[in-house]
């Protein structure tokens, strides 16, 4: 099942299928270590639509919901 990252429940693991949106955002995410094909672990979600904390390849990154919604994940 393909979901956008902000819809994935904390504790779940998924594989990045695609990153939609502008090239700037895509490049920045790749620089921080998020690439299509990577396995992402959603660790926690902030309250009041706060950010999502994910972990991949040993790096933890906090993403705002807007950005998380552009990452499509296969769970």
């Amino acid at each position: 099942m393909t979901l956008s990252l902000d819809a994935v429940q904390p504790g779940k693991v998924g594989r990045v299928k695609d990153i939609t949106g502008g090239m700037g955002v895509r490049l920045r995410l790749e620089q921080m270590g998020i690439h299509p094909g990577d396995v992402i672990h959603v660790k926690r979600k902030g309250v009041l639509r706060g950010p999502i904390l994910i972990e991949m390849n040993g790096v933890e990154v906090a993403l705002g919901r807007g950005i998380a919604s552009r990452i499509l994940v296969e769970v």
Binding site: V25, R28, L29, M32, P51, L53, V59, E60, V61, A62, L63, G64, R65, G66, I67
Partner: peptide, 11 residues
């Protein structure tokens, strides 16, 4: 529109 948070959280 603010582009939103993208921040590494180190150990």
């Amino acid at each position: 529109e603010a582009p939103g948070l993208m921040l590494e959280v180190p150990a």
